[in-house]
């Protein structure tokens, strides 16, 4: 597993993915410039832009790497040589998964630091309404990483049952958007405004809410942007939720991949 992890990261590096990220990260240079436009919340805007850009780049990365990684190995028959080695398929899948997640974590760290530096440059000139809680900033990025780790596990799950990369890629994008708004939909269903909704539709949405991943739960950007204190119990619960969910999805992916005919 360790060996697969290592060569997965090596592969991502050799494919110049990090160069691409670096080029994209040049956009961070615009953060201080754009935040100047704000009337009342320069620092908040700088943090918003940094966190959003980081999250967006991580999304691209996880959809792309998660969707393509397994598929490419199978499509180009690299898997034949690799699985001819004394490796369990589960080790192969998990090694690849951990390789991608490690890379996402690395990228998030680098982007997080760059974003923090640019945001910090804004604070000196235009102090925020409330002092920035950098701890929250770290939590926001860390939970973003968890969110995308969960997303990558879905991309892997789709890869194990698909022979093309369309399902993993588009499946991941879809599940990301659905999972990001499932909380909204659930809240709506349980609000008085939804009284007119058909009961069947209500229960369908409620059922989906429990089954689909709740990506919205991993979004702690507001806490970082507006310095709202963290609810540590909530963080802990979210973390446990992540662990359970990702274990199930990866478990399914491994089971399906074990049965897969190459």
């Amino acid at each position: 597993m360790k060996n697969i992890l290592r060569i997965t990261i090596l592969g991502i590096m050799r494919d110049r993915v990090f160069h691409g990220i670096t080029v994209a990260a040049l956009v961070f240079g615009l953060v201080p410039v754009i935040s100047q436009l704000s009337m009342r919340q320069v620092t908040e805007l700088a943090l918003t832009l940094s966190l959003s850009l980081t999250s967006f780049l991580l999304l691209l990365l996880s959809v792309f790497l998660g969707g393509v990684s397994l598929w490419k190995d199978i499509d180009r028959r690299y898997a034949y040589s690799i699985l001819g080695l004394p490796l369990r398929r589960s080790d192969y899948v998990l090694g690849k998964y951990l390789g991608i997640v490690s890379f996402i974590l690395l990228t998030a760290t680098v982007l997080g630091i760059v974003g923090a530096l640019f945001s910090y440059s804004a604070i000196g000139v235009y102090p925020p309404n409330r002092p920035v809680l950098w701890e929250n900033y770290v939590y926001a990025i860390f939970f973003d990483v968890l969110k995308y780790a969960l997303l990558v596990s879905f991309a892997f799950l789709f890869s194990t049952i698909s022979t093309s990369f369309f399902l993993p890629m588009f499946g991941a994008v879809c599940i990301f958007f659905v999972g990001s708004s499932s909380q909204e939909a659930y809240n709506y269903v349980n609000s008085p405004e939804a009284a007119a909704l058909h009961p069947a539709a209500k229960s369908a949405i409620t059922a989906l809410y429990y089954v689909l991943p709740n990506f919205g739960a991993f979004d702690f950007k507001t806490n970082a942007i507006y310095s709202i204190p963290m609810d540590y119990q909530g963080l802990m619960l979210t973390f446990v939720y992540f662990c359970c969910y990702v274990s199930i999805v990866l478990g399914l992916a491994v089971i399906l991949f074990n049965r897969r005919q190459l």
């Binding site: 436009l37 704000s38 918003t48 832009l49 973003d144 990001s180 708004s181 939909a185 942007i225």
Partner: peptide, 16 residues
């Protein structure tokens, strides 16, 4: 519903 985790960014950008 479609903003995913970019609500703050979308809000900020339309205000700008």
């Amino acid at each position: 519903y479609v903003a995913a985790d970019q609500k703050e960014f979308l809000a900020a950008s339309v205000v700008l």
